[in-house]
Computed example of a mutant assay.
Amino acid sequence: MHNHAERRSYRIGDFRALGEKFDIDYHFPSISQAAADADQTIIAEGGISEYALSSGFRFTFSRLSIRQPYKSVSLGHAPLLILLVLEGHVHLKIGALEKTLTSGSAVTMQLHPEYPLQATQMTQQPLITVTLAFDPKGADVGRASPPTLLRLLSQIHEPVHTWSLPDFLKTQLVKGYLPELPELQQSLLLEGLALQLTGLGIPENKTQTHVTDAVSQPQRERLELVRQKLEFAPQQNYSFSELARIAAMSPSSLRTKFRATYGLSPFDYLRRCRLDLARQYLNQGFSVQQTAHKVGYRHATNFATAFRHEFGISPKNSQ
């Protein structure tokens, strides 16, 4: 079930072994190629514990001192991934979206190989994190995932949802959630914690779904590929025929079924994604002109009009 943490040094070779196990690429920007090839440079010191549960949930508890900065690129797939930062900070990038997590903050996301998750860890101590991943394919044979959970996960339409960890839970996790208990009790505690974090971390569905019998499950899965493309790369230019090809539908069918599923037409959804991303860039200090171009608008005036219509204020006043 688990691998207990022991304080030790983690070298480049250890990170590469982790990468092979979890489909993650690691990059070490401050280390020469020769040193990287030798696999012996110490990157971090501390402990990492893994707990794979029979339900398909998997925990990774990590308490490290980062000696050399590194970047990880997660290439796998997971319908749910929750990252909690208890101490320190982590910078995340997925598609065009970027987030920095600090102590007490958490993020909920879904991983898709087309939009790998990039995480950057700078030199710091300590960095204490908890990662919860869920994949029903990882459940024990004959162990079905709760239907309510799978239904909730299918309705998440916010690719990177940040939230704050309640103080009582943060305190408990920092202390060390697992006492020295037999494996059965540990499993029960972790199953309960996984459901608690999932309940806290699933975002409110801002997009009202209107799924009808006219939209089959295979069609919903293809529509979700379209939605993710718009969400993670809103700065790109799209044609209706291109999106229809991804959905394996006619343009008119795509328009009807996308609206039936997500409550908006594809291009209304794209506009909202662009403007949500624009708010992030404006908050980071980019000018209105720079922001307009970064989110896919050719003309700043068109961007300003759309921004004002969406949020009720001009882009300049939102900075």
Rank of each mutant, 00 (worst) to 15 (best):
E231Y: 03
P266C: 09
L254I: 05
I246L: 12
L190D: 01
A214K: 14
P179R: 14
D167F: 13
K229F: 05
Q228N: 15
N205D: 09
Q290H: 05
P218F: 12
M249T: 07
Q208W: 07
K229V: 08
I246R: 00
S252A: 14
S241E: 12
S164R: 09
S253A: 13
R274S: 02
K175I: 10
L254S: 01
S216W: 11
P234G: 06
L277A: 05
L270V: 03
T162Q: 11
Q289K: 15
M249A: 15
S164I: 07
L223F: 06
Q185T: 11
L193S: 03
S241W: 05
S287A: 14
V160E: 06
Q185V: 10
L264V: 04
R272K: 08
D268E: 14
P179Y: 07
S187D: 13
L184F: 14
K229W: 03
L173N: 05
Y238T: 02
R279W: 04
G199D: 10
A233K: 14
E221G: 08
P203M: 08
C273W: 00
T209E: 13
E183V: 06
L165D: 00
Q236G: 08
E221L: 12
R222M: 06
Q219E: 11
Y262E: 02
L264E: 12
Q235C: 08
T212I: 09
Q196W: 09
Q280D: 12
Q280Y: 08
Q185K: 12
A244Y: 02
F267G: 06
Q280T: 13
K229S: 14
A194M: 07
L243P: 00
D213A: 15
Q208T: 13
Q284V: 03
T261Q: 13
C273Q: 12
R255F: 06
